[in-house]
Computed example of a mutant assay.
Amino acid sequence: MSTVIEQAVQARLVASAPRMETVPATLRYDREDPFAVSMAFPPPATLEGVEVSWAFARELLARGVDAPAGDGDVRVRPYGYDRTVVEFHAREGVAVVHVRTCELRRFLERSQHLVPAGREHHYLDWDEELAALLEEYP
């Protein structure tokens, strides 16, 4: 069984202009980092012209499809009947995207099959984590 789940989604970039532009994005979940998910945007969809990826808590995404969640760099909230808003806050500004809630729920369900919520700690390699931490602080 694969330890990584990737799912392509269409995100609508919300801008000050009245039209919302559709941009491709990829949701990713890796069993080796069981508490996190990431959302990556390809170079053409970013101001810098390089791929940009944001990592955040899987639990934040799961809570945010039903009710506003997050108060940091990433915030998630329902929008209307079938959309979820994901906000990415950085020094340079805020990027706001709308994603179909059904796509997010499908991704979360797939990640739950890989690592059930509440069982993430069983998938951590504590020896490797400790070795990496000790390596950072000689």
Results as ranks from 00 to 15, higher is better:
5 I>Q: 13
6 E>I: 12
10 Q>D: 11
12 R>D: 13
13 L>D: 00
13 L>V: 08
13 L>A: 09
14 V>M: 10
15 A>M: 12
15 A>Y: 00
16 S>P: 08
23 V>Q: 05
25 A>V: 11
26 T>W: 13
27 L>W: 05
27 L>D: 11
27 L>N: 06
28 R>F: 12
29 Y>T: 06
32 E>R: 15
32 E>I: 03
35 F>H: 15
35 F>K: 11
39 M>D: 05
39 M>F: 08
39 M>Q: 07
39 M>Y: 00
41 F>K: 04
41 F>W: 05
42 P>N: 01
42 P>A: 05
43 P>K: 09
44 P>I: 05
44 P>Y: 04
45 A>R: 10
45 A>K: 06
46 T>H: 06
47 L>A: 15
49 G>W: 00
49 G>K: 01
52 V>A: 15
55 A>L: 15
55 A>I: 13
56 F>P: 06
58 R>P: 12
58 R>F: 09
59 E>F: 13
59 E>K: 15
61 L>D: 02
64 G>D: 07
65 V>Y: 04
69 A>E: 01
71 D>K: 11
74 V>Q: 02
75 R>S: 04
77 R>I: 01
80 G>Y: 01
80 G>C: 01
84 T>Y: 00
84 T>L: 06
86 V>C: 04
87 E>C: 01
87 E>A: 07
90 A>M: 08
91 R>P: 15
94 V>F: 05
94 V>T: 15
94 V>W: 03
94 V>I: 14
97 V>F: 06
97 V>C: 02
98 H>R: 07
98 H>I: 02
99 V>T: 03
100 R>G: 10
100 R>Q: 12
100 R>S: 03
102 C>S: 12
103 E>R: 13
104 L>C: 07
104 L>Y: 05
104 L>E: 03
106 R>W: 00
107 F>N: 05
109 E>K: 07
112 Q>N: 14
112 Q>W: 11
113 H>R: 15
113 H>P: 02
115 V>K: 02
117 A>G: 08
118 G>T: 05
118 G>L: 11
119 R>H: 14
121 H>Y: 13
121 H>N: 11
123 Y>I: 01
124 L>W: 07
126 W>G: 00
131 A>F: 00
132 A>H: 06
135 E>T: 11
136 E>H: 09
